Amino acid sequence: MKIGLYFGTFNPIHIGHLIIANHMAEFADLDQVWMVVTPHNPHKQKSTLLDDYERLHMVHLATEDFNKIKPSDIEFKLPQPNYTVNTLAHLGEKYPQHEFALLMGEDNLNSLHKWKNYETILKYHHIYVYPRVNSGEMDEQFVNHPKIHRVGAPVIELSSTFIRESLKNKKNVAPMLPHKVWEYIDHNLFYSK
């Protein structure tokens, strides 16, 4: 099975995340997309980041009706701070029957050369890139790279930061969130302070 890994804090997960994940699962040559929830880095200020398991629960709520999209807490079990190359190695050992690829926005691709062991990632894994607004010029070494695939997914101009700020300012953001996620946030008064 070919699995696309979509990493994020998902703080909170919103419809933009789901649109991208679903587009990749349906229109790229992937069998599933795993939403990999990034845990809180113990060495960084927590600020507005909700508890790891609260964010994971919201990803479960958001994806339960999508049979090709699965939540993953794989990074919760790895030593922190963690690097993508370590997660990929761990997944390869745990699920040798699967092939893992990365999903990322064009903006992240532009900084891929700064990632730990990025050459190793590109040697063993494909990367599926979705468009982003104002992502800048693509790094020359990635333009015609055989492991990098550009996917014409919808451009979503929506961010978790915008949603958190809006909730803090008592704005209605219900249409921007999966319904069950909105209910869960509203019931728990998350991000409202």
Rank of each mutant, 00 (worst) to 15 (best):
F27H: 14
H17W: 03
I15V: 15
L5Q: 08
F27C: 00
F27Q: 03
N11L: 02
D31T: 14
N22E: 14
L30T: 14
W34N: 12
T9E: 00
T9M: 04
G16K: 03
M35S: 05
N11V: 06
F27E: 03
I20P: 07
G16E: 08
A21H: 06
D29N: 13
W34A: 07
P42N: 10
I19T: 12
Y6Q: 02
P42F: 13
P12Y: 02
L18G: 06
F27Y: 15
V36S: 04
V37C: 10
H43W: 14
W34Q: 12
P42S: 11
T38D: 02
W34D: 11
L30V: 11
G4R: 04
V33Y: 06
N41M: 08
A25T: 13
L5E: 05
V33N: 11
E26T: 15
I15D: 01
L30F: 10
H23A: 07
P12L: 06
A21L: 03
P39W: 07
A28N: 10
M35W: 02
G4P: 12
V37S: 04
N11Y: 01
L5A: 04
F27W: 14
V37H: 05
P12K: 01
V36W: 02
T38P: 02
H14N: 09
I20R: 00
V33P: 15
L5P: 15
G4S: 05
T38N: 07
M35A: 09
N22C: 07
M24L: 14
Y6M: 10
N41T: 09
G4M: 01
Q32A: 13
E26K: 13
P39T: 07
I15W: 01
H40E: 00
N41H: 08
W34M: 07
L5I: 07
D31L: 06
I20T: 11
A21Y: 04
F10A: 03
A25S: 14
G8D: 03
L5W: 04
N11A: 03
H14V: 15
H43V: 10
G8H: 04
G16Y: 06
N22Y: 14
G4N: 05
P42E: 07
T38V: 11
N41A: 10
I20K: 00
Y6D: 02
H43Q: 12
D31Q: 15
Q32N: 15
A28C: 07
V37A: 09
P39G: 05
F10S: 04
H14A: 08
W34G: 12
L30G: 11
G8I: 05
Q32L: 10
H14G: 13
N22R: 15
I20S: 01
H17T: 10
F10G: 05
M24I: 13
Q32W: 09
L5N: 11
M24R: 11
Y6T: 02
H17L: 04
A25C: 10
E26C: 11
T38C: 10
G16I: 14
V33I: 15
H43L: 15
M35N: 05
H23T: 13
I13F: 01
I13A: 01
H23N: 10
N11G: 02
G16D: 09
V33S: 10
I13K: 00
F7M: 01
M24H: 13
W34T: 13
P12N: 02
I20A: 00
P39Y: 08
I13H: 00
F7I: 01
N22K: 15
M24C: 09
A25I: 12
M24N: 11
H14M: 08
